[in-house]
Design a protein around this nucleic acid. Structure first.
Lengths: 108, 108
DNA sequence: TGTATATATTAGCATATGTTCATATAATAG
DNA sequence: CTATTATATGAACATATGCTAATATATACA
């Protein structure tokens, strides 16, 4: 339950900094409608940047910016084919958590 | 998987607005270190506002503000005893998701 | 080389967010 | 009532965030 315990200052049962940062950053990244829509689109299969933009009615720049955030957190990866980059999800666990949340929220 | 489908404009497999808002708002709320620390503290049992502030080394005002956010999203509830309010978590599913994320993140 | 297409990047702006300080409210004891 | 304790609230501030417009980069191809 608690790993990476450098002998720093860890209070009774408190989360260590590393875990706290990673968890909050991950949730913060999931806490935006645009990024959720992108990840939701990538549930089934990979999509190019332009296709994502068209399907979700977003600007190419917007999609690119958000994909960079998602890529920094290793939530998506990409594959190149010519000038086209095909993005797909890259963290089964986070995707699973997102699916749970969507499922929970959509049941009213 | 998709409920509350008012016959509005729902594209192929896209999330409806209600679900999208609820999910993103929930994740956004979980995306802050202070709120995670508070919720993590409430994993086991209820705590008063002042106790939370002392244990987590936060100002009373900060804790109160964040608890209000959490309460608005029904993530916590409280019980009054005199002038003291004892807060506890109020959404098993979200707590479970938070636990999963912490567990996943702490395993390095 | 030059052109076309796909994507990335930078800067700017408006809005959102989290904390602090000061103050207000609520409940209890005397 | 007054005083005390616990909590909530409002304003102000600094910082973070997300989008857009413009531009840059990269790959492919003639």
């Amino acid at each position: 339950m608690m790993a990476h315990k450098e002998p720093e200052e860890i209070k009774k049962g408190e989360l260590d900094k590393y875990t706290l940062n990673l968890v909050s950053q991950t949730f913060k990244t999931l806490g935006d409608p645009t990024r959720i829509r992108i990840l939701h689109l990538l549930f089934q299969k990979e999509y190019s940047v332009n296709t994502i933009a068209k399907v979700l009615d977003l600007q190419q720049s917007t999609v690119s910016h958000q994909l960079r955030l998602l890529k920094n957190l290793r939530l998506v990866k990409y594959r190149r084919e010519g000038t086209t980059l095909y993005y797909s999800h890259d963290d089964e666990h986070v995707i699973d958590i997102l699916k749970q949340a969507i499922d929970h929220a959509s049941h009213h």
